[in-house]
């Protein structure tokens, strides 16, 4: 499997990274050499092998339903590039 320029552009858009023509070309080469290299995994017989879900074998701990966090809107927004009162501000979204 290999990627072409259009695919590079498509995945860059999915990942929300704008990419220049030149960068896309370079990336196409890099991605293809990496993909070609990982291709060797197809040699491995994985029939009947369960995919790894977690290296730690234990039951997932669950927390009780109590309010123990929040209540600091100022801290939530103060690092934001733009905010007003305690709202984050972003370029207008059209739904």
């Amino acid at each position: 499997m290999s990627v072409d320029l259009a695919t590079v552009r498509h995945i860059a858009h999915l990942a929300r990274i704008s990419i220049s023509d030149e960068d896309a070309k370079n990336m196409e080469g890099d991605l293809n050499s990496i993909l070609e290299w990982v291709e060797q995994l197809s040699e491995v017989d994985t029939d009947g092998v369960e995919p790894m879900t977690s290296v730690v074998h234990m039951e997932m701990k669950k927390r009780d339903d109590v309010v123990s966090d929040g209540g600091y809107a100022e801290k939530i927004v103060h690092n934001a590039p733009a905010y007003e009162e305690t709202f984050f501000m972003v370029p207008k979204v059209i739904e």
Partner: peptide
């Protein structure tokens, strides 16, 4: 949106793509 760098764009998607 919430922290770090923002590079302004024409719309929200443009802002995301330029920032990243």
């Amino acid at each position: 949106v919430r922290y770090g760098l923002r590079v302004e764009g024409d719309d929200i998607i443009d802002m995301y793509e330029k920032t990243r």
